[in-house]
Simulated assay, not measured.
Amino acid sequence: MTSPYLAALNTATKYPSIPTYHALDPKNGGLLDRPTTFEGDVILTEKVDGTNGRIVLLPDGDYFIGSREELLYAKGDRIENPALSIVEALKPLADRLKPRDEHGQIVMFFLEVYGRKIGGAAKQYTGHGSLGYRLFDIACLLPDVLDWPREQISTWRDNGGQRFCTEATLQRAAEAEAIELTPRLETVPGEWLPTGIEDMAAFLAGRLPVTRVALDEGAGHQPEGIVLRTADRSVIAKARFQDYTRTLKRRANRR
């Protein structure tokens, strides 16, 4: 990617990392007894184990499709990269999306593309090579951001510069565009969330015993985990089964 504009667009529209519900130990990748603090209602959604895709919709109707790290396709075949089936999965959706922001903002649709041969968990969602996607976030930004130096853009993005939709707005947009969201499991008061690692492992198993996004009858149905978020998305965290299993096994071996 040589164009300064495309480089800035790519940097500004990447999805920021979501922290784990219990902090990760930088020494061994295990979980620490430091849970995320939530206040008020917390929305629980399934975390789908695929690859992060994005549709970047410009105010003039132009669009780009990208992976988590790079732009893969531009409207009119100006860029084309078939990596991880992301373009194949998302191009029909991108073709029918229309600019919806009256303030001239760039709108980003963030989706999990999964199934087929995407990652080691693909077989949990399909036994027949099916491919699917689910919308999990929408954010926007003003085009002026693209005039900044790339390092400044990265810092801005990683410190919450992108303006994400609230849960209510996200649901309305998904309905208006006929896009399936990642499954909404339950809404619970923040004080109900477990603080201990063992208790959180049990909480996950009780809320999501099997995936809700299987693509066909041949799927293995083992889920990846849950995303926890406030209605205004001011606090968001993820809890993955494998992190809790690994941490509890390591603790048991020490005894």
Rank of each mutant, 00 (worst) to 15 (best):
P194N: 05
K98E: 15
I138A: 00
E102S: 15
F136M: 04
H128R: 14
V188N: 08
G190W: 03
N159E: 14
I106G: 11
I79T: 07
Q171C: 11
D199S: 12
K117Q: 12
A168D: 15
E177M: 12
Q124Y: 07
P143N: 11
P194Y: 03
Q162R: 14
T126Q: 08
T195N: 09
R184D: 06
C140T: 14
R96W: 06
I153N: 07
V188P: 06
L71D: 06
I197N: 07
H103M: 13
P82H: 05
W148S: 13
E102I: 09
L142V: 09
K75R: 15
A89K: 15
Q162Y: 05
A122E: 03
E177G: 01
R172D: 15
T169G: 02
P194D: 03
G161H: 11
G119V: 01
D137F: 01
Y73M: 06
I197S: 05
L93Y: 11
F164D: 08
D199Y: 00
D101W: 05
M108V: 15
T166N: 03
R172K: 15
E151H: 08
R78H: 10
L111C: 09
E102Q: 13
A121V: 00
L93W: 10
G120R: 09
L181F: 08
A122L: 01
E175P: 00
E198G: 11
G196Q: 12
F64D: 04
F64P: 01
F136A: 04
L97A: 06
P183T: 08
L71S: 08
R100H: 13
S67Y: 02
D77W: 10
G104H: 08
V113K: 01
I86W: 01
D77C: 02
G127N: 09
I79K: 13
L193T: 05
L72W: 06
Y73I: 05
Y133V: 03
K91V: 08
G119F: 01
K123G: 12
D137V: 01
A122P: 02
V107F: 03
G76E: 07
L181R: 14
V145E: 10
T169A: 15
E198N: 09
A74M: 12
E151W: 02
Y73N: 08
P183H: 08
E80S: 13
D144V: 10
G66Y: 02
I86S: 01
P149G: 04
P99A: 07
G190F: 07
N159L: 07
A202S: 12
R150Q: 14
A173W: 15
E186G: 00
I65Y: 04
A168P: 00
L72K: 04
R116H: 13
I65Q: 05
F64L: 08
G115E: 03
L84I: 00
E112I: 05
A178S: 12
L72E: 08
F110P: 00
K98A: 13
S154T: 14
P189D: 12
S67E: 01
L71Q: 10
N159Q: 14
D101I: 06
F164M: 09
Y73P: 04
W148E: 14
D101V: 02
E88A: 12
L135F: 10
W148G: 01
R96G: 03
E167Q: 14
T166Y: 01
M200T: 15
D95F: 01
I179S: 01
G196Y: 00
